[in-house]
Amino acid sequence: MRLVLEALSKVYRDKAGQETTALADIHLVVEEEEFVAIVGPSGCGKSTLLSIVAGLTEATSGSVYFDGVLPGRTPRIGMVFQDHALFPWRTVQKNVEFGLEQVGVGKLERARRAREGLRKVGLQGFEDKYPHQLSGGMRQRVGIARALVIEPDLLLMDEPLSALDAQVRLLMQDELMQLWDSVRQKTLYVTHNIDEAVALADRVVVLSRRPGRIVKVIPIDVPRALRKQHAHQVRLMEYAEEIWQTIRRDAEAAFMEGVEDR
């Protein structure tokens, strides 16, 4: 099963009838077990793109579909949000169970799988805490567990680490890498952090700004397991530099305009 984005575009129209093209003509295929990062400057529509794939926003034209789905199977999508979007009235355990409830998993099985998921992200013993009792990094781990326990066919991550401080962020990046290795599910990962994209992804898709178009697709040809090794650092830095040079002009324009990514 693979995810296909075909000629996708999104045009926003404001009250004055002014049209803004957020995304234009996006073609992208995410293969089984592939981790694709989407980077771009503010205003490139990368979050909009993820929102369309998640079924939270309607595309203006084009289509998104899963290809090669077994008959009778509904592909599951797990999503991780920048602001973690945990339900404050639910305990950690119940938050992780939320997705399982929606797909109709029984009570005992739900509890078992949520505990298992929490153990995977290193949060055993925190099942009965509420989100506000946790640190930012722990909350996002709950968010990741909530997405992983439904055994998604597609994992969507919308800047999952960007609300965290720099140190926690680096730690979480390593953890995410290991976690992902254990699930190996196709993933779309939106970030504005180039190093993060290079560290995690199989391919990095670079978007331009307004309209958001794919300007470059860069395969990261260093096996994920070896990316921590000293010998490969220069190669990874070259990738990052290439990406930065691609988006630099757009990033400057975004900076001068001071427009938030929408």
């Binding site: 998640a54 079924g55 939270l56 999503m79 949000f81 979007a85 339900f87 939320f98 929606q102 969507l156």
Partner: peptide
């Protein structure tokens, strides 16, 4: 709205 989006992303219906 981010909570509603999260719920819908995980497959919640209008009623849920």
């Amino acid at each position: 709205p981010s909570l509603i989006r999260a719920a819908v992303a995980f497959g919640a219906t209008r009623r849920t």
